[in-house]
Simulated scan of single mutants.
Amino acid sequence: MKLNPRQLDALQELVNIGIGQAAGILNDMIDSPIRLQIPYLQILSPTDVQEELEHHLNGEQIAAVQLKFTGSFGGIAQLVFPTNSAAMLVTMLTGEELGTHDLDSVKIGTLSEVGNIVINGVMGAISNVLQQRLNYSIPSYTEGTIATLLTSGGLSADTVVLLAQTRFIIERLHIEGDIILIFNVNSFDALLTAINQLAGGL
């Protein structure tokens, strides 16, 4: 699905607003400031997103937090990290050393909280700016391969995937992750309609 430059810019701005809000909350969780950047945003088919992520992550195992959203448009939102980046992020947030037993025990809770903050920041910005009501499920945590993750996301032929690469910058430590928003075509069309209405009113 092709978007015109105005639609793509609007989506980029909505995601940036959400990431900025999430960064503010995460800054309060640790002593070191966190900056979140989104270098690029892409609209992809299910086949293309799997190829893109497998190439980007070099086939690594991933840690992911996902939640479902319903309302004016529905789908699944996921925050995905390579497992090494996930471990580094948990260490920075909790002070637990890499490789310790305690790190494993706190990892799921910590990453679920981070995922919840980032995903809700992005989806909250989209729903608030576009004045659309959304409801969210409780976030769930999983580890595995990209293929397993995307299968759990319920990808089908009529799925549209919004992929945004995210960089967490903490004291010069670059931890990368990906935000994946999965829509069926009807839901994505509803999102674009809301964006077009907003743009038309500006």
Rank of each mutant, 00 (worst) to 15 (best):
D31G: 15
P5Q: 10
T166L: 14
T91A: 14
L53S: 12
M29W: 01
G154F: 08
I30N: 05
P33W: 12
N116I: 10
G24Y: 06
A147V: 13
D158N: 04
I195L: 00
N4G: 10
R133S: 09
V129Y: 11
A199R: 11
E171K: 10
L3P: 07
T193P: 00
I146H: 07
H55G: 09
F73G: 09
L44G: 06
P82Y: 07
V90M: 04
Q78D: 10
L41P: 06
L150M: 15
L41M: 09
F188Y: 01
I119Y: 03
F69S: 13
F183R: 01
D102L: 13
L41T: 15
Q132Y: 00
A22C: 03
I175G: 00
R167T: 14
S45D: 09
F188N: 00
T151D: 12
I34Q: 00
S45Q: 05
N16P: 06
Q132T: 06
D9W: 05
L181F: 11
A199V: 03
N186G: 01
L111Y: 00
S187N: 14
A77C: 12
R133C: 02
S156M: 10
L44F: 00
T83Q: 15
T110K: 01
A147Y: 13
K2N: 02
L26C: 03
I138F: 00
Q165I: 14
I17R: 05
S105T: 09
T145Q: 15
I146E: 01
H56T: 15
A190K: 00
G18Y: 09
E143Q: 07
E51K: 14
N27G: 02
V118I: 12
N58H: 15
G124Q: 08
Q61H: 06
Q12Y: 02
H55D: 15
T47M: 09
Q61P: 02
V65H: 07
G109T: 08
A77Q: 13
L79A: 00
E54P: 11
G154E: 09
